[in-house]
Design a protein around this nucleic acid. Structure first.
Length: 371
RNA sequence: GCUGGAAUCGUCUAGUGGCAAUGACAAGAGACUGUACAUCUCUCGGCUUCGGCCUUCGUAGGUUCGAGUCCUACUUCCAGCA
């Protein structure tokens, strides 16, 4: 069983430590998205330097290339990527869901590779096998996403996710007993969309299972997230960690997530937006490509202590983006990733010191006041 | 000097009688939440009561219902010959 210590708790919100075979994760924690075993535009050393504690890779992408077996040969995800720290893998459910021409059956999902059109299939069992080969510390159960206002569709997807969960657990346990390696852990994924009664049902189902933690998935809109998380996390066992899948573009999502009992987060938005020139500051997000930054020789964010903000001006970043220098994306990614990692680190500090509410109010008031 | 060829939006470019006029770049702005994303979208002559109106394809004339497109002259540039 994955070891998770809670250092301080206030309502659903808590600060703790997840002890993984590759090291500890002090929670709450923002986990970097390393979909293809790489954080886009950044080296693993840069990730360490900016304060990242863990990364999350994607089973779908790694199955396509270079393949789970190759990563296994390399000694697992952490070794292969030279990250060496705690790692997660997402099951592939989300990606497959987002592909066109996906066929969901009870057995699994049939889809075409976005790279070469190969007809592929993923099942709960094959996802578990791939994740064991990839060898992340924490795996996600293979789930079926649904994005629908139709409650019946949502319930069908949720019920199937539950049936798949049982198969994931069975396969995970089989692999666990037959594999002589460092332990690997499994999170169940709670679904149910925007229907809180379905969310409650899903949380109850998952809570009863022999898993190491929980992913909360299928959150597409931040509205209503607080109530949803309150519902779900009141039901999930308190002593296991919870990962809020895919949320973290907006700082408020991180505050709300932590406040309502989520321990880890991952989100592609900080690095994606960085590559597209949309950069976080304490006074809100700015588009560094805008003409008004051409002659702005101030730091991107004077209160940020990342490599980018300590050394370079907005005018310089503007110039790098305008001239399409690769360095633009590197520096911007360092900053955005650091920014969200730091927010969550400070949320943790504020939980430990009992000042969460003050920190939240002060941060959000300033961040969202500009717009 | 002669003979050909060419001049279109900031730049390059499409256009061969129905055109405010193609595409690319540049420029201006927006989007992005378990990454098919180094991506995508919109704007890009002026005005508008959003139906249009006005001014534009080197300059000036002309032919035509209608000209960026055809004719004439001029200007500038390019190539070849002297």
């Amino acid at each position: 069983m994955l070891k998770f210590d809670i250092e301080k708790q206030n309502g659903l919100m808590r600060a703790g430590v997840i002890h993984t075979p590759h090291g500890d994760i002090k929670t709450p924690c923002f986990v970097g998205a390393a979909t293809r075993a790489a954080v886009k535009a950044l080296t693993m050393q840069e990730m360490r330097d900016l304060g990242s504690q863990a990364i999350l890779a994607n089973t779908y992408h790694l199955i396509l290339t270079p393949g789970p077996d190759l990563i296994k040969q390399a000694g697992g995800l952490a070794e292969f990527s030279s990250w060496h720290g705690p790692t997660f893998t997402d099951s592939g459910g989300f990606q497959i869901f987002s592909l066109p021409d996906v066929k969901i059956t009870e057995e699994g999902a049939k889809f075409k590779s976005h790279i070469n059109g190969d007809k592929l299939e993923m099942t709960p069992e094959s996802s578990m096998q791939a994740q064991w080969a990839i060898g992340a510390d924490i795996h996600m159960a293979f789930d079926q996403l649904a994005k629908s206002d139709n409650k019946k569709d949502m319930k069908d997807a949720m019920d199937r996710t539950h049936r798949w969960l049982d198969r994931c657990i069975a396969e995970h346990q089989r692999l666990e007993t037959e594999t002589i390696s460092v332990p690997q852990y499994l999170y169940a994924v709670v679904q149910g969309g925007n229907f809180n009664d379905l969310r409650a049902e899903s949380a109850k189902y998952c809570a009863a299972k022999d898993v190491d933690g929980f992913g909360i998935g299928g959150v597409f809109v931040a509205e209503g997230m607080a109530e949803m998380l309150e519902t779900v996390n009141s039901i999930l066992p308190n002593d296991k960690p919870r990962h809020l899948l895919g949320m973290g573009q907006e700082p408020i999502d991180l505050f709300v997530g932590a406040e309502y009992g989520c321990d880890t987060f991952d989100c592609v938005a900080p690095t994606r937006m960085a590559r597209n020139g949309s950069l976080y500051t304490h006074d809100g997000r700015i588009n560094i490509k805008n003409a008004k930054y051409k002659n702005d020789f101030t730091s991107l964010d004077p209160e940020c202590d990342c490599e980018c903000c300590k050394n370079y001006s907005r005018a310089y970043l503007h110039h790098l983006f305008r001239t399409d220098e690769i360095t633009a994306k590197v520096l911007a990614s360092i900053h955005n990733e650091h920014f969200v990692v730091k927010i969550v680190d400070r949320i943790r500090d504020s939980i430990l010191s009992g000042t969460f509410k003050e920190y939240k109010n002060q941060f959000l008031a300033r961040y969202y006041s500009a717009k």
